[in-house]
Simulated scan of single mutants.
Amino acid sequence: MSDCLPRRLSPVTLTGTHVQLVPLSPAHHDGLVEATRDGSLWELWFTSVPDPDGMAAEIARRLRLADVGTMLPFTVVSLPDRRIVGMTTFMNIDIAGPRVEIGSTWYARAVQRTALNTEAKLLLLGHAFDHLDCLAVELRTHVLNQRSRRAIERIGARLDGILRRHTRAQDGTVRDTCVYSITAPDWPAVRSHLRSLLA
Rank of each mutant, 00 (worst) to 15 (best):
D3E: 14
P6R: 01
P6E: 03
R7V: 13
R8T: 00
R8E: 08
P11H: 07
V12E: 09
V12M: 07
T13H: 00
T13S: 13
L14R: 03
G16H: 01
G16N: 03
T17V: 12
H18K: 10
V19E: 01
V22T: 14
V22R: 15
L24N: 04
L24Q: 03
P26M: 04
A27R: 12
H28C: 07
H29S: 12
L32V: 07
V33E: 03
E34I: 01
A35K: 03
A35R: 04
T36R: 01
G39C: 07
L41W: 04
L41A: 09
W42F: 08
E43R: 14
E43L: 15
W45C: 02
D51M: 02
P52Y: 06
P52N: 08
G54A: 06
M55G: 05
A56W: 00
A56M: 02
E58G: 00
A60K: 10
A60T: 14
R61E: 13
R61N: 13
R61G: 11
R62K: 12
L63P: 11
L63I: 10
L63C: 11
L63D: 10
A66W: 08
D67I: 01
G69R: 09
M71W: 01
T75V: 15
V76N: 03
V77Q: 13
V77F: 10
L79R: 13
L79A: 03
P80Q: 04
R83I: 11
M87T: 15
M87Y: 00
T88V: 13
T89G: 00
F90W: 06
N92H: 10
D94H: 13
I95Y: 14
I95M: 14
G97Q: 12
P98F: 05
P98H: 08
V100S: 06
V100H: 06
V100L: 13
E101Y: 02
E101V: 02
G103P: 08
T105G: 10
W106Y: 11
Y107T: 00
A108F: 07
V111E: 07
V111K: 03
T114C: 05
L116S: 05
N117W: 02
T118N: 06
L123S: 05
L125C: 15
G126A: 05
H127V: 03
A128K: 09
F129T: 03
H131Q: 11
L132M: 11
L132C: 12
L135V: 08
L139K: 07
R140C: 07
H142N: 15
V143N: 01
N145R: 06
R147C: 00
R149G: 02
R149C: 06
R149S: 12
A151P: 10
A151L: 11
I152A: 09
E153P: 01
A157S: 12
R158Y: 00
L159C: 11
G161Q: 04
I162D: 01
R164A: 11
T167H: 09
T167L: 15
R168Q: 15
R168A: 08
D171T: 06
G172H: 05
D176R: 02
T177W: 06
C178F: 05
Y180S: 06
S181W: 09
T183R: 10
P185Q: 07
D186L: 06
W187G: 05
W187D: 04
P188I: 09
A189Y: 00
V190T: 14
R195P: 00
S196R: 14
